[in-house]
Nucleic acid binder design. Structure first.
Lengths: 322, 322
DNA sequence: TCGTGGAATGTTACCGGTAACATCACTCAC
DNA sequence: GTGAGTGATGTTACCGGTAACATTCCACGA
């Protein structure tokens, strides 16, 4: 059940079989059909190990992801897999703790041993990306949401802030992710830029870890700020899950969303519409980002059309009462 | 940078290098150290393609997953990866639409072409598992949460129902997942068993698709049932995300949880503590299940200790008011 | 002293594709 | 008619490990 058997069955050389498999031009239709019929009847299946050994390319992309309990990373992986498959690549995944450089290193080593043709980081620290690139792994390394993708994330945050400003908010707080994450950099930049456009000074800011629990933990501080006379009337949260925790904490503290504070999230998780109140948030074209990221790692320069982020207005935002 | 270079540097044969790599017994310590030093200084890294070609085993497990926006599947993948890595295996992931047999088939084909040593399904239909096994893929195929794992899931649901009964509920409704999923089978069985123990007839049941949206869509029917004089006073929902949607829908319909209906979920997602009200739910030992599943596919029979599911009581359950 | 057996290591071929180069048949221009 | 050019296909070696078998060396008992 290798090329040799197929070749014998079709009465051609193994090289011709290889050419048919790889859709090389310059094969007569009659020959191609004969080979394909032989492959079909023998139930032939290429052996990727052999192919990888011969070509020293595995047609596999490596993905290093962190925390799978977060919406962004887990959906990012799925989006990358489907983008990779569309390009005829396989995907090998390794999970690592993004904040532990040794663990990310081990994951990289792990993937390189597998001979991946490129590595994509999900939910990574900027420093990690640089560190990996410096190690000269011999294959391209990039991160989802880096480069132009970061710009689109910033644009998403701009949408959210513009929405708050349009409602009349002028004192806007922010709850961000850990400062060293790529995603946080992009989202924070969008926040600052949107406020600058309207000459509004940023309100108080806090840092969570993307989890609902961290949003909950920061809620008392936010509530205290909101209760001050010139306190914020709205808060932009860097992802939906933290927004969930924030809203739970505010409610526990006796504050009403959106009457006392408006809350916007980021991601538009499928759950966000069912939070209480339903969360106003920003949806980004994750599938498109993934396709672009894969194309970049594969060194393709055909532009993949980008869909811009979209604001989803629900019940967690309203004009300020004060 | 292959075994031959290492062998030359260490002054041994390639076979000896191979033996050191694979930790074969019967290598003198002095020789082993010399080889290891050579590998270290040359930055040697095994080529998995070559190894797979020679041994016709890839040391890679294939995982077929569906919907990554659901908590269960996405965390399941991560748990399997870490279990597989602990066994020194790599993991290749393919995403498929579980309800579309052709797509699952394509994913299997995809993984087999890669020469995986076993295939694990996540969030699969029972029929799919059987269909794949029937195709005689030449490697073991199993599903997370199948077999004994299913029993533990059932035990988890029993905990949840016991909790409701202990609170005084006697009329208990259920919202399940699609009937043909393995997970649903186990959870439904646990529900029926727990009620049977107390000689309680099951209340009305509905079927969702695991998503919060489907919970929301079923909420009006549940609310109507609850309002009937002998309507259910509690509902067991098959996963937390549907429970989120159900609670949102009940609230929209003017019913209070837990005053009018108690709600229990299943999974204990990290978000569940921050739903409103905080969700009473069941936590299962996903990491343990994953280890057991990997051990099974690898044909190991050393028993992996099983931690039993745990009930997490929060604010969504209370004694019935009626 | 020699044979025996086991431990440590070496030799060789092979896994299944594919790159690089070789070959062959045929067309076409001069 | 002949050589150049081109398209279709064949030949061969090689990718980098490892299995299977061969060999060497030494300790030890008869």
């Amino acid at each position: 059940m290798g090329v040799r058997e197929v070749a014998a069955a079709a009465g051609v050389s193994t090289q011709t079989v290889s050419r048919v498999i790889n859709e090389h031009p310059g094969i007569r239709d009659e020959t191609r059909l004969r080979v394909q019929a032989a492959m079909e009847s023998l139930g032939y299946r290429v052996n990727n190990a052999a192919r990888a050994l011969g070509t020293s390319r595995s047609r596999t992309l490596g993905v290093i992801a962190s925390d799978a309990t977060l919406y962004g990373p887990s959906v990012g992986i799925a989006a990358l897999e489907s983008a990779a498959r569309a390009e005829g690549r396989w995907m090998a995944t390794a999970y690592a703790d993004a904040s532990d450089e040794a663990s990310v290193d081990a994951a990289l080593e792990h993937l390189l041993a597998q001979g991946v043709d490129g590595v994509i980081l999900i939910a990574a620290h900027e420093r990690t990306l640089e560190a990996l690139a410096e190690r000269r792994p011999g294959v391209p390394v990039t991160a989802l949401h880096s480069g132009v993708g970061a710009e689109r994330q910033a644009a998403g945050v701009v949408l959210a802030v513009e929405h708050l400003v349009a409602l009349g908010h002028r004192r806007i707080a922010r709850i961000g992710g850990p400062a060293d994450w790529l995603e946080e950099g992009a989202r924070a930049a969008g926040f600052d830029r949107a406020l600058a456009v309207h000459a509004i000074a940023p309100g108080p800011q806090w840092v969570g870890d993307w989890s609902a629990a961290s949003g909950w933990a920061l809620a008392p501080a936010l509530a205290a700020a909101v209760r001050r006379p010139d306190g914020p009337t709205a808060v932009a949260v860097a992802n939906d899950q933290m927004a969930l925790g924030v809203m739970a904490g505010l409610a526990a503290d006796g504050l009403d969303v959106p009457a006392d504070v408006s809350v916007v999230g980021f991601d538009d998780t499928p759950d966000a519409a069912f939070y209480r109140p339903a969360l106003t948030t920003v949806r980004i074209d994750l599938a498109g980002e993934a396709r672009r990221c894969v194309a970049q790692v594969l060194g393709q320069d055909a532009p993949v059309p980008a869909r811009m982020p979209e604001l989803i207005v629900r019940a967690s935002t309203a004009p300020p009462a004060r």
